[in-house]
Design a protein around this nucleic acid. Sequence first.
DNA 1: AGCCGCCTGGTTCCATCGTA
DNA 2: TACGATGGAACCAGGCGGCT
Length: 323
Amino acid sequence: MASAFARKRRRMGREHHLPRDARIRKAGDRRQARVPASLRLRCRKVGLGRAAAIVGIDVGEDFLDLAIIARGSLRLSRIALAGLGAPRAIASLAARLAEAAPELSRGAIALVDSPRAPLDADSSSIPMKPRRPAPSGRVIDGGLRHLFARLGRHRLSMYPTPGVEYFVRCLRARGLKAHLEALGRELLGRFHQISSATMGHSTINSGGALFTRFMIVGFAVHVALGMLGVRAFESFPDMEFRLWSGDVRLAPKTRRREALAVRRRICSRLARIAGIFPARAPLTLDEADAAVLALTAAAAAKSGLLVALGNPAEGRFLVALPR
DNA sequence: AGCCGCCTGGTTCCATCGTA
DNA sequence: TACGATGGAACCAGGCGGCT
């Protein structure tokens, strides 16, 4: 699969033309001055040093699940987020990450199950700034759809990344968890001030409407990893499970027992491919998601291809492709 | 072409089950 | 009876496969 992709994508390591989406097609050409930098997609091959630690991070509102590959073995760890607070909540998060995984230092790479920024925010500085022009969809998502269309046979189902207004509404909801508020204000402080004057007092209180607020933690994780000198990428566990599932049918997570069993089998096979010794098998779907991010990166580094899609405002998304 | 249903993500709420 | 553990549905937006 990786070789097919490489064959179709000549000039790997430079910016590429992606002909399906006119916006992205233009994005690959630096000479097209009409396309703002924030809408350009960069596509390049990623190399890993043999000694580099690889850390997969599954993001939730209250916990981070970590899968840490270093020195040929894999261990799983969980970080609680309660108690993170102003004035330096993100720096405190970085300290907790470094304590739980000392391997998270310069030279390591991290794969995070969350976008780096809201759809219409530029994450290249903190607090984030508005993205001009505001895109209707992420450049990275367009690139992923194009990639999967070319690979064929794999379905890509992604939940769209909401815009800033959604997260500001979450931050103003009653009963907001203190650590989410502290992280959110540090990331989106300016947006929060601006929006308060214009948005009224609408809040989001039901479970369905607010579930994507976990991404506030994800945005902060990307920044915290930067503080530690770690190369951080967004990635997507379900996508990696599907890419590396072979002929195994991937049960949806709603069928929990079956879903965990098949994911454990895939992780076990990935560990064999990558030559990694797992300390234990994942016990939850969250652990399995963290593990698959780290294991697919390790497996692709050994016998596959690591491709990064990204742009300055959205950050970088890593796809680990099998051979 | 247009419609329907399925799928992804994490949280919340409620029902059910097993155990002390 | 009173717990905790577990399971399943609902929440939302948008892409996509399959059907008419």
